[in-house]
Design a protein around this nucleic acid. Structure first.
Lengths: 150, 150
DNA sequence: ATAAAAGCTCAACTTAACTTTAGGTAAAGT
DNA sequence: ACTTTACCTAAAGTTAAGTTGAGCTTTTAT
């Protein structure tokens, strides 16, 4: 009975965000609500998932603008089906894979010299590689060689 | 001859950032420089790597505060050796692995229902799982069950 | 030698993503 | 019934991470 009638307070508690954040997301067009008699917000249950996705994506550096864009692929006249979510997911897959790659590259850049056999910074082929990339134009650091973000 | 004498302009070009950003990072204590006769900044070559690491970490959502903290493990009286970088890397490994996990969880959350066999949102065990987690206290969304950030 | 390009400092401005405050209404608990 | 708790709106404030601008000095190119 209450499941498609979540109040802001309920939502906030269940998503672990502030009420003001939900107001803010609504103002920005990331989520929607309908109003009851007393003009209070009520949310359909699937908003829980939307907010979870928003928070999760934000934690790995995706901006609200991008998240909004992704969420815009979901229908807004009805509860999204699994298929709707899957379409969103497929749009996002490359973005997420790119970020995973980016993280792995960073980790490898930091730890990579363990296996490279070099003893000093100045002899390290990886370190020098990075430096050589400088000649390839601005921003061409080793990490961007493999995968680009933004 | 010039390699441990990079100017801000050189650095900026080679790292793909603005000069003002380097000033800003210095002010915040993320990088250091020495000054020449004319009071202009000069950077040792390893600052290139520092800035690359800063930018890379930022892209995957790590704050400058955390990055600063990590970089603080590097020696500041001498050029960091591979070992110094490795110590930093090992400190960061769990942070980076957590973020990779987080991304994979997000991707799985979005795409997971492909294999779950459900046909509707209300029947989906993954979706309902998330909802059940609501009873476990604020912020307990499915993603946080597996790994926490911040 | 001189002019253009780089640099310097310090302060103010910008953008994203929220949070806080103020002043009032609605709903719930006792 | 009444009082405490939850909501509402609109505007102002906050923090992180830079960017821009003004006025002045140093380097570099011709």
């Amino acid at each position: 009975m209450k499941d498609n009638n979540l109040s802001v307070g309920d939502m906030a508690k269940r998503c672990g965000v502030n009420v003001s954040t939900l107001h803010f997301y609504e103002e920005k067009g990331l989520i929607k609500s309908w109003r009851n008699q007393g003009n209070q917000r009520r949310y359909p249950k699937d908003t829980l998932r939307r907010v979870s996705v928003i928070k999760a994506a934000q934690k790995v550096g995706v901006s609200l603008e991008k998240i909004k864009h992704a969420l815009a692929t979901l229908p807004d006249n009805r509860t999204p089906t699994m298929e709707d979510w899957q379409i969103l997911a497929s749009h996002w897959n490359s973005e997420l894979n790119a970020r995973i790659q980016y993280l792995e590259n960073l980790r490898d850049l930091l730890t990579g010299c363990i296996g490279c056999g070099c003893l000093s910074m100045s002899n390290c082929p990886i370190y020098n590689d990075q430096d050589k990339l400088a000649t390839e134009g601005p921003g061409a650091v080793i990490l961007n060689k493999k995968v680009k973000l933004d």
